[in-house]
């Protein structure tokens, strides 16, 4: 039940530290949205280069929970898609692999937004 907890903590923590440095050391106007976009794109690129997989083997959820993990899922999916379906897989693979995440995020966010109100 508790295996991989420490590696997940360390890898996850370090991935977040890089994001924190990005926000603190660059000139302002970097919003959370910019960091999230950078991370997902970074995850896709690292995934495509085969560099993200070792990180997941090392850190487990520490590498899949940060948004770069979502990018990795997209790139992994697209590569598998190409292997299976060729050119069509270029377009279907990524979104297919990420479908669960996207669907859960959309539905749960929608429901929460409808039920709750902002506190300010």
């Amino acid at each position: 039940m508790f295996e991989m907890i420490i590696p997940a903590f360390i890898i996850g923590g370090l991935i977040c530290v890089i994001g924190q440095l990005m926000m603190d050391l660059t000139k302002a106007n970097i919003t959370p949205a910019h960091v999230l976009v950078t991370y997902v794109t970074g995850g896709v690129i690292l995934g495509g280069l085969g560099l993200y997989k070792p990180l997941i083997e090392l850190g487990g959820a520490g590498a899949t929970i940060p948004l770069s993990g979502f990018g990795y899922v997209l790139s992994k999916g697209v590569i598998e898609g190409v292997d299976e379906n060729g050119l069509l897989g270029v377009f279907s693979g990524g979104v297919e692999a990420a479908a669960v995440g996207i669907a859960v995020a959309v539905l749960s966010s929608y429901l929460v937004a409808v039920v709750f109100n902002p506190k300010g």
Binding site: A28, T31, P32, P118, K119, G120
Partner: peptide
């Protein structure tokens, strides 16, 4: 009003962010 200004000029009030 803090909340009206926040949502117009910056981010939604419940969106996490560290202010400088």
């Amino acid at each position: 009003h803090h909340e009206t200004a926040e949502r117009q000029y910056r981010l939604p009030t419940e969106q996490g962010n560290q202010r400088p």
